[in-house]
Each structure stands twice: as structure tokens, then as C-alpha cells.
């Protein structure tokens, strides 16, 4: 018994018996009665009647079970010693910042503002490239804007090429909303991800990721949105994506990363953590 208070979760006195709610059949009777009420609807009314009667009994019985006082029964407490211990005594740690015993990833991050600025700057770059494309190919800077608007507002694709090149307030608003939200989100993603990329963050985030993304859209869009697909020039599409990636990435890494603080409140820590790992010390082939 002495080991108990030292190794258990509470130092309280161990009682001799514990009161628990008494067992009872009334909930069962009520449930059966209610089911019979419903069964009567698919068989004969007498079954419902019987069910109603049983339910009444069940409800009254249950009521008396809890009122005026809940019925209890006491259970004797078993004599036992519960020792909480482990054979895995060693704790290994991932060696990244040795001075920190427990560390939360990542150690350094870019401030949130960097992601927002990066996203906005990238959005301007992307829009510029796209508008140049529209000007060269259709003679109108509104052409790509209208196409983007058509992603949501599908009726726009029924329009002729000439109409698509004209300015449209509705499509401009739709396209602007889409473009800005997506750019902001991707910018924030860049702000978070760039410190984690192993090497050449600008190459990976600015060129390779947009290439992958373009490839994905290229392979899927024909299935998902064939009308839109027919109107897209993939070289220019990729160019605008890369423009976004490069500008957003460059803006982000111009900010100084800040060290993640260890003991700030939960919400601010964003909750990404990696505590140490216990090293195994397996005893004699014990294999669990």
C-alpha cells in the first residue's frame, strides 16, 4: 500500500467502498415499450396498446428510481497496488536546438505580415503578366479578367470572344475577389512554408511549386471545366504563376524571421510541437 500514494495520480485516501448508480431494468422496459408503440404501426393496433402500457410502467419505474432520491448500491473496493512505471527510461531528443529541452517547430518563422505583403505583391505581378497576355493575344487587358470571373460565373463562357474582351463590371468584381483571396491565402502559405523548405527556397517556392501547380491544373482542367480549358494559353498561364511565386517569395524572404517563443499562450503557439522521444530499452526480445 505504501507504493500507492507515491506512484499514483492522487494522494487521496482509498475508500473501502464506492457508491454507484443501482442497476435497473426500467430503461429497458421503456425502450421496449416505445419500440412496440412503433411496431404497432406496421402490425396491429393491439401491439401499440401493449407498448403504450409498457412505456407507462417503464416511465413510472424510472421516475421512482431517481425521485425523490437516486437509488445507489455500494461496491467494495478491491485491495490492489497500482504501480505506474515504465521500462523505457531513456528519452531521446531530436537535435535541432540543443539549448531547448523541448522544442516547438518551427524555431523561426516569418511574421504574418510578410505573407500578406508577399501575397499582395505576387497578385500584382500575376495580374500584370496576365494582362500583358490579354493585350497581346486579344488586344484587351480585360480578357484574362473575364476568364477568371467565368470560373464562378459560368454563363460568361457562353459569350463570344469579342464580348469576352470587353470590360464587364460584374466579372471584374468576381475576378478581383477570387484573385485577392487566393493570392492572400497562397501568400500566407508561402510565409509559413518558406522557412521549412530545405534549400533554395526561391527556386522551390518561386519556380518549381508554380510549375507543379500549373501541371496539375493543366491535367485536370480539361475534365473539370472543358469550356474554360479551351480558352487557356498554358505557356502564359505558367508564366503568370511563376511571376506570382517569384515575387511573393522574394517579398517574404526580405523580412527578418522571428524566433518562435516557447511560453506564450496556447493560441499563439499555433500548437505545433515535437517533444522528445523515449528511447526504447527492450527487455529480452519483448516485442510489443
Amino acid at each position: 500500500m505504501s507504493a500507492y500514494s507515491e506512484t499514483n495520480l492522487s494522494s487521496g485516501e482509498r475508500p473501502r467502498e464506492i457508491v454507484l448508480p443501482a442497476r435497473t431494468a426500467w430503461p429497458l422496459v421503456l425502450a421496449f415499450g416505445l419500440t412496440l408503440v412503433f411496431t404497432g404501426l406496421v402490425t396491429i393496433a393491439a401491439v401499440s396498446l401493449l407498448g403504450g402500457l409498457l412505456s407507462l410502467f417503464g416511465a413510472v419505474g424510472w421516475f421512482r428510481e431517481v425521485l425523490p432520491h437516486e437509488r445507489h448500491e455500494s461496491v467494495p473496493v478491491r485491495e490492489e497496488v497500482i504501480v505506474i512505471a515504465t521500462e523505457r527510461r531513456e528519452v531521446a531528443r531530436i537535435q535541432i536546438a540543443p539549448e531547448l529541452q523541448r522544442l516547438r517547430f518551427p524555431i523561426e518563422v516569418y511574421p504574418v505580415a510578410s505573407g500578406i505583403r508577399g501575397g499582395l505583391a505576387g497578385s500584382v505581378a500575376m495580374a500584370a503578366v496576365a494582362m500583358i497576355y490579354g493585350w497581346i493575344s486579344q488586344g484587351s487587358i480585360w480578357y484574362p479578367v473575364n476568364l477568371l470571373g467565368a470560373v464562378v460565373y459560368a454563363d460568361a463562357l457562353q459569350l463570344t470572344a469579342a464580348r469576352l474582351a470587353q470590360f464587364s463590371m460584374l466579372l471584374l468584381l468576381v475576378a478581383l475577389t477570387l484573385h485577392l483571396t487566393t493570392s492572400l491565402l497562397v501568400g500566407l502559405l508561402y510565409g509559413t512554408m518558406l522557412p521549412m523548405l530545405p534549400r533554395h527556397p526561391i527556386l522551390l517556392g518561386g519556380v518549381i511549386a508554380p510549375l507543379f501547380w500549373s501541371g496539375l491544373v493543366y491535367s485536370v482542367l480539361g475534365l473539370v471545366h472543358p469550356l474554360l480549358n479551351a480558352r487557356i494559353n498554358w505557356w502564359w498561364f505558367t508564366a503568370s504563376q511563376i511571376a506570382f511565386g517569384l515575387v511573393a517569395g522574394l517579398v517574404v524572404i526580405r523580412h527578418t524571421p522571428v524566433r518562435v517563443r516557447q511560453f506564450v499562450p496556447l493560441a499563439m503557439r499555433a500548437g505545433i510541437e515535437a517533444t522528445g522521444m523515449p528511447e526504447e530499452k527492450r527487455d529480452k526480445g519483448e516485442n510489443r
Binding site: 506512484t7 494522494s11 527510461r89
Partner: peptide
Amino acid sequence: MSAIPAPISSP
């Protein structure tokens, strides 16, 4: 099995 005593002070 080494049972290291772990007195948790109950605040």
C-alpha cells in the same frame, strides 16, 4: 521495474 516515486503535489 523501477517505480520512481512521483509525488504530485495537489495544489
